[in-house]
């Protein structure tokens, strides 16, 4: 079981953590919402919850709760630019369909 992160994404995470000034790492997870069922969660982590799994990749701590882990195991996190927009992108081998907006996915 693992989650991977590209070096660009890792650099951006590190930079934003440094900018923020505090935090252990980032939480990657899923929550139920949206048109096709589930949406990604991406947030800073100040405090660990019971059962959290911690992955250390490229010097960045990625924290995933056990329920989410089932859905996003094997996911690759990248940082990309589309025109004037930039942000994080997930490549999930488990996802079968995405809604138009791309914020939700189904398995």
């Amino acid at each position: 079981m693992a989650i991977s992160i590209s070096s660009t994404a890792a650099a951006h995470v590190a930079e934003q953590l440094a900018d923020r000034g505090h935090g252990i790492g980032i939480r990657v997870g899923v929550k139920t919402t949206g048109c096709s069922g589930m949406a990604y969660v991406l947030e800073f982590v100040d405090k660990l919850e019971v059962g959290d799994e911690i992955f250390e990749e490229q010097g960045v701590k990625i924290i995933v709760d056990p329920k989410s882990l089932v859905y996003i195991d094997g996911t690759e996190m990248d940082f990309v630019k589309h025109g004037v927009n930039e942000g994080f992108e997930f490549k999930n081998p488990n996802a079968k369909g995405e809604c138009g907006c791309g914020e939700s996915f189904s398995i």
Binding site: Q16, E43, F44, G87, F88, E89
Partner: peptide, 17 residues
Amino acid sequence: MALLQIQEPGGKQAKPL
């Protein structure tokens, strides 16, 4: 897919980049 930004814990909006 849409590009995500890192949020504050609990879904609060992080300071915009």
